[in-house]
Amino acid sequence: MLSIQRLCKEYPGGKKAVVDLSLEVMPGEILGFIGHNGAGKTTTLRCAAGILSFDSGEITIGGKSIKKDPVEAKKQLAFLPDNPDIYEFMTGIQFLNFIADLYEIPGQERKERIQKYADAFELTGSLGSRVGGYSHGMRQKLSLISAFIRKPQVLILDEPFVGLDPSAAYQMKEFLRELCGEGGSVFFSTHVLEVAEKLCDRLAIIREGKLIEVGRTEDVVGNNSLEEVFLTLEKEGEQEA
């Protein structure tokens, strides 16, 4: 569903953010992306979402290249950044309508979807207010709703649990599983290792732009905790350096 092949991204000034990274997220799968700050997680996610250009490699979503055929590729995608800034002059419902228009979701269907997700995230009553008056958590919920109403084939999330209350975090996990049950794929980064361990089918660990470990969660973790595995891999990396 989402395929990243030999991705390389270098920022001006020579910093290599991602080096020859390849991975795939299969239909019905949740892939967790783990790494320390500055490891290259956000850069990889943003390249995959078509927000950031990259130097070499190929990224396809449902077989469509994000570089050569971006519009078609993005029709199957939803991306949520770590700090979702949303137009403050719009009300919540105006923003959701705007997104639904961009993805050409028919009127009745969009109403049903918005109702479902807004009720679940307890945001329906606030949809008539301007986004400028929303708290960080409310903005996060609004962005999540805007992502789920698209019924994306691939959902890419950058630190999605930041700012969410426990009930919203639970709802989000339920909807992620529901999306995967319908054949969608989820690719998300997180620092919350317990969540990654419990939620993800597979895990990918990145260090200094390079993928150092990828596999089924139980294979990566083994008899240890994910925290221990992550710290061991980090230590090995430091020794190699």
Binding site: G92, A100, K111, I114, Q115, S126, G128, G133, Y134, M138
Partner: peptide, 11 residues
């Protein structure tokens, strides 16, 4: 002040 009395109508 974010109001909390919005009701979803036809879109």
């Amino acid at each position: 002040a974010a109001r909390s009395d919005y009701r979803l109508t036809a879109l």
